[in-house]
């Protein structure tokens, strides 16, 4: 008995090391497994609060670029109003790119990462604003990511720049679809894989979200084709897609509340059960 205690006291730091490395390795492995909520995420009061404080400073420094973007959007909206057929009654915008305004939650990016293989954003709205896991996140230019974790006041988003994202996407003019991934190389480009060889495509074509996704509505902009790879072995294309969004510079974003999502999932579940 004495010897056991002696052994434990003598090697206490080794035992502590083994215990802690067990915990941290399991956290690492758990964070790499697909579709599992993370234990350690930046959607909590400590990191969310700190990021919000840091962001207020950054926001002040970036006022000029933000103003430019707003001015641009203003000009666009104005031209839409002036170009309506009946100029006497200004048309009220009720949607942004096919999504009804009442289904959107306006939120702000308070932390953005883009320098590792698995990138996440932190937003300053959470469950109290109605944000739930697996809602889509877009901004005025195109898609941004998918909500992963939520806390009462904050939420984290899997960015499109993440090895784990898979988003259903299609060619805008032809309805051929594939899935959108990221190879971890450049922040400006994502890859569209599994696109059938039958599709007629050329460089510069627009890629939008597909109708098969229950997260994003159809026809939200993603990017344009920058390079086409033909694999002679298979019947699929792999495309390099240049994002419309500059993922290193995000400000305000919109979270999409999809009302039909639960209905679709329940329906598909029913089919599988039978």
């Amino acid at each position: 008995m004495q010897q056991i205690f002696n052994f434990i006291f003598k090697n206490s730091y080794r035992i502590l090391f083994l215990l802690l490395i067990g915990i941290s390795l399991s956290l690492t492995i758990q964070s790499h497994s697909f579709h599992r909520s993370k234990v350690i995420s930046s959607a909590n009061y400590l990191s969310g609060g700190v990021y919000e404080k840091v962001n207020t400073v950054n926001e002040y420094l970036n006022l000029k670029t933000e103003n430019d973007a707003l001015a641009l959007e203003n000009a666009k909206l104005r031209s839409m109003i002036f170009n309506t057929k009946d100029t006497a009654t200004a048309k009220i915008l009720d949607s942004i790119k096919g999504v009804k305004l009442q289904d959107l939650i306006v939120s702000k990016v308070i932390h953005n990462s883009y320098n590792v293989y698995e990138n996440y954003l932190t937003l300053n709205s959470g469950e109290l604003d109605g944000v739930k896991t697996d809602m889509g996140v877009i901004n005025s230019l195109g898609i941004v990511g998918i909500i992963e974790n939520t806390s009462p006041k904050y939420s984290t988003v899997i960015s499109v720049l993440n090895k784990r994202t898979q988003i259903n996407a299609k060619i805008k003019k032809s309805d051929h679809f594939g899935s959108l991934n990221w190879d971890g190389k450049s922040t400006g480009y994502v890859q569209l894989t599994d696109l059938p060889r039958l599709a007629l495509i050329k460089i510069g074509d627009t890629i939008v979200t597909g109708g098969q996704s229950v997260i994003f509505p159809e026809n939200i902009n993603i990017g344009t084709i920058a390079k086409i790879y033909r694999d002679e072995q298979t019947n699929f294309f792999t495309l390099n897609v240049k994002l419309f969004n500059d993922m290193t510079n995000l400000g305000h974003v919109y979270i999409i509340k999809s009302k039909d999502r639960d209905e679709i999932i329940n329906l598909e579940k029913k089919v599988k059960d039978e």
């Binding site: 690492t28 964070s31 790499h32 993370k38 930046s42 698995e118």
Partner: peptide
């Protein structure tokens, strides 16, 4: 916690 990286830094 701050960089959303699971347990890699730890």
């Amino acid at each position: 916690l701050f960089s959303n990286s699971g347990g890699t830094h730890a």
